[in-house]
């Protein structure tokens, strides 16, 4: 039974591979900009406390999480596949690494690790602002102001790694 754990040596190999590979990919910076725009838009929605969305605007809060997950998905897309010479043909990195001395799940771990830092930063900002605004506007906190950022901004985007 294989253990799903981080192999530091293999993580370094994958990091070095993508450093070399993305340096040849002209589209790589675009992924970062697109992801940044989506995360920025989602953050505007995700700073608003839960109580403010309660009635007919609750779908906007859900949309915020979808946009956030989409932004992080774009951020990790460059570690999943890329198109060949701007054609419809795609090359997936998992197929490139299939016969290389690296375990398949190390690539999944690598993509999850790439998402963790931005997730934690955005979650912290969302938590602080939600709590401050909720306390200032309503005089009390809702438990959903803590549960939703943690669930929506850490657990869901981590699945983007797969």
């Amino acid at each position: 039974m294989k253990v799903f754990k981080v192999d530091k040596r293999q993580q370094k190999m994958i990091e070095a591979f993508f450093k070399e590979e993305l340096s040849n990919d002209q589209n790589a910076p675009m992924f970062l900009y697109a992801a940044g725009i989506l995360v920025f838009v989602s953050m505007i929605l995700l700073l608003v406390p839960f109580r403010a969305w309660e009635e007919d605007g609750s779908y906007l809060a859900v949309m915020g999480y979808f946009i956030f997950a989409g932004g992080l998905g774009i951020n990790t897309a460059k570690y999943k596949s890329r198109n060949v010479n701007n054609t419809n043909q795609y090359v997936t990195f998992s197929s490139i690494m299939r016969y290389l001395p690296v375990e398949p799940f190390q690539l999944i771990i690598f993509r999850i690790r790439k998402n963790i830092k931005p997730c934690v930063i955005c979650m912290s900002i969302s938590l602080v602002f939600r709590c401050l605004i909720s306390y200032a506007a309503y005089g009390k906190l809702s438990v959903w102001d803590i549960v939703l950022p943690v669930a929506g901004m850490v657990i869901i985007p981590v699945f983007n790694g797969f």
Partner: peptide, 30 residues
């Protein structure tokens, strides 16, 4: 073990739009 096993086949994938040298530069990291 895979570090010491070479595989030659049509099924073996390399980076299609990279040269032989660029492929080696990228994949030698492993």
């Amino acid at each position: 073990v895979m570090a010491y096993i070479g595989f030659v086949s049509e099924d073996n994938q390399f980076l299609p739009d990279r040269s032989a040298l660029q492929n080696a530069k990228s994949l030698s990291c492993f």
